[in-house]
Design a protein around this nucleic acid. Structure first.
Length: 298
DNA sequence: ATGACCACCTGCGAGC
DNA sequence: TGCTCGCAGGTGGTCA
């Protein structure tokens, strides 16, 4: 479930179903699922087993589950020690986090399986294409205001749902890039959470073509496209995210409905919902861009 | 130091 | 029926 709304749907599901539960076993069924964890799968298993899962957090398309330290879980009095490590997850193109009863047969692409001390539903990382993965990372203080982030994602910019998102600073950074606006929207070090679907939808709403050079856009135009991205992702989140098929589902395996509300993505040759002109598909960075030839100026 | 490309995977539908 | 091709929500390493 790649883009921000879909990942947020998963984060909420994890917060509801696995936070506060103690992990008794972790099984890595495919080594590629933990390839980002350089110390290897035995180390991943050892660092998670026995810990209680703390808060479920997200930045952009990354999400992580804090691991409560032994002192947190054993002694009730806080001595100022918070979590120092977290299970970092990225869903890639096809990753799913599913909460499933032990009796549920293993999914075809089940990669990592977590079981809990309470004997309740398992957490299953399922990933057809294996572009996603899990790793255990130390938490580091980063940014201003300071956030506690898994070390490998300290370079990921705040997303538009972050209370500390600084739109003015992002507008400046975007306009300083010597590239085109769609590339900038997809650059997770400028603004995170936006992927191919929501970039195209935001550009359509703002009436801009993705090939527009950032340096030639006014501050107001960049603001407008960022605001459009924020709006479209918020609307998608309200509808449970976008899914065209069973690959993009929440922790209970259910799809969202935002695909019905898309205005351009995947609508090649169908009429623009604003002016009726057939939507155009163009190759872009080895993938596709969709736009209205009439209402998105180049 | 930036910006652009391509590899990393599996599965599905279209076309032959 | 079955093959090959193109395509899919993303990210990084590497090259210029």
């Amino acid at each position: 479930m790649p883009e921000l709304p879909e990942v947020e749907v998963v984060r909420r599901g994890l917060a509801e179903h696995v936070v506060g539960r103690q992990v008794t076993s972790v099984e890595v069924l495919h080594p590629r699922a933990v390839r980002r964890h350089l110390a290897g799968s035995t180390d991943v298993v050892g660092r998670i087993t026995g810990h209680t899962l703390g808060a479920a957090r997200r930045r952009g398309k990354y999400l992580w589950l804090e691991l409560e330290s032994d002192s947190d879980s054993t002694d009730g009095s806080t001595d100022g020690e918070g979590p120092t490590e977290a299970v970092l997850a990225h869903l890639g193109m096809s990753g799913q986090m599913l909460v499933a009863d032990q009796a549920t047969p293993p999914q075809k692409h089940l990669r990592v399986l977590f079981s809990f001390a309470d004997g309740g539903p398992q957490l299953r990382f399922v990933d057809q294409r294996t572009f996603g993965g899990l790793s255990v990372e130390s938490l580091v203080a980063a940014g201003s205001p300071v956030d506690l982030l898994p070390a490998p994602i300290a370079h990921i910019a705040r997303d538009p749902m972050d209370p500390a998102f600084d739109a003015e600073a992002v507008v400046t950074a975007v306009r300083n890039r010597r590239t085109v606006i769609k590339r900038a929207l997809l650059d997770q070090s400028l603004v995170s959470g936006i992927g191919n679907i929501y970039a195209d939808e935001a550009l359509w709403r703002a009436g801009l073509h993705g090939a527009h050079p950032t340096a030639s856009l006014t501050r107001g135009a960049v603001h407008a496209v960022l605001a459009s991205a924020t709006e479209v992702m918020a609307e998608a989140l309200r509808q449970g995210g976008t899914s065209f098929d069973a690959l993009y589902v929440n922790v209970n395996g259910n799809s969202g409905y935002f695909d019905r509300s898309l205005n351009v993505y995947g609508r090649q040759d169908r009429p623009c919902r604003r002016c009726g002109t057939p939507i155009r598909r163009e190759p872009f960075m080895n993938r596709s861009s969709y736009s209205c030839p009439k209402c998105q100026s180049r």
